[in-house]
Design a protein around this nucleic acid. Structure first.
Lengths: 207, 207
DNA sequence: AAGAAACGACTGGTCTGACCACTGTGACAG
DNA sequence: CTGTCACAGTGGTCAGACCAGTCGTTTCTT
């Protein structure tokens, strides 16, 4: 009727089956999945079909397999996906511009979110860290994004960061004062000041 | 030499092999890839390994296979990825809040981008359309996002929209005037006015 | 008894060959 | 010329075999 046709490939069904299993058993990153042979038996499919499904999920970075041990759920992060998709997607020049543009805007969004939602204490801690610690640009903004406690932005930013770094742009040198300044402006809770501090840090001339 | 190292799985090497092949021959969406059997022969690997690689690429939406015909390069788009990643990523409770928050912020980003980059003519056209056409909320903002010509934002927004709709929130009724008003504010190129118009439309009390 | 070596059970990694279902094509009968 | 049909090629799936690691237990050595 609807789509009970067998036009859906087995391996896709297995992927869905796995999703359900993970949901039902509430499996989290680090947990172990059944072995390939067991899955093949439980689902009444060939082991090769199970493998196709698992390999696909692995390439996506959703699971991890260790020979001799088993298959485990993984904490998702860009990984190979980036490298992969980049050759397929980032062909034209516009893509390059999109990545830069998007990364910057998301960083701004996260700054804004922090400005809205963080407590004074959190912002103060952040500033102290910015003053005292050693960090790269990625590390600094990772902390910014983490502070929002928005996993979606975190995922997106991590992927964007990987793309961004794969562009091999000229590394611009950002002085530590710029970072500290930005952290400082957060405390003022003044949106436009934060915005300007970010622009300065990124050396964006105008808006 | 290069691949005599057994630390990389065959199917990953095949994926890379395919990437190279696509680059070298400059294959584009719609073009045909060699058959599974031919690949298996040319690369001296088993057909099952070739399949694992192809299935992974298929799940990613990078290729398309048609039984009896062959394997073709596909025009990339989110596809199954969304559905897939959602269950693996959005497990916790905060996910819901993240989706809403992120969608709104990205919509604001796109509005801001349009305000920066669009010509007067484009904005005028957009306003005319907003006044005269019939559209849903999704359709309205799809147009907004499209206008930015940032494919990355477009992809992200589409994904977010799907997530968002799957939440089955109470449909809020937005009057057409709000949309027109927003389009109108774009023309003024006043950032804060656009921001306020958006907040009004989304019925967000404060910031 | 304590430590080391060997074994066995289990897991993923890969290959081969077989069969099915489907699509495109070309030969042949009308 | 046209319609039919068989065939070769392609993806979809499966079963079985073997390799190569990991881990826990057993057995042997000291």
């Amino acid at each position: 009727m609807s789509q009970s046709r067998k036009d859906t490939k087995i391996y896709v069904e297995i992927v869905n089956e796995l999703r359900l299993m993970i949901e039902r058993k509430n499996l989290k990153p680090g947990d172990k999945l059944p072995s390939e042979r067991e899955l093949s038996e439980r689902l009444n499919v060939g082991r090769s079909s199970v493998r196709e499904a698992l390999r696909a999920l692995e390439l996506l970075g959703l699971i991890e397999t260790r020979r001799g041990e088993g298959t485990y759920i993984r904490d998702y992060g860009g990984h190979k996906l980036v490298q992969l998709l980049s050759t397929f997607i980032l062909q034209d020049e516009n893509a390059k511009r999109d990545i830069i543009e998007t990364k910057y805007l998301i960083e701004l969004d996260c700054l804004w979110l922090n400005l809205q939602k963080c407590s004074d204490g959190q912002l103060q801690d952040f500033k102290s860290w910015a003053e005292e610690a050693q960090y790269t640009d990625d590390e600094f903004f990772l902390k910014v994004v983490r502070l929002t406690e928005n996993h979606l932005f975190l995922r997106m930013w991590i992927i964007l960061k990987d793309y961004y770094n794969s562009l091999h742009l000229d590394q611009m040198v950002t002085s530590k004062e710029d970072y500290v300044q930005l952290a400082d402006m957060l405390i003022t809770r003044d949106e436009s000041k934060v915005r300007n501090a970010y622009k300065l840090l990124r050396k964006l001339s105008k808006n």
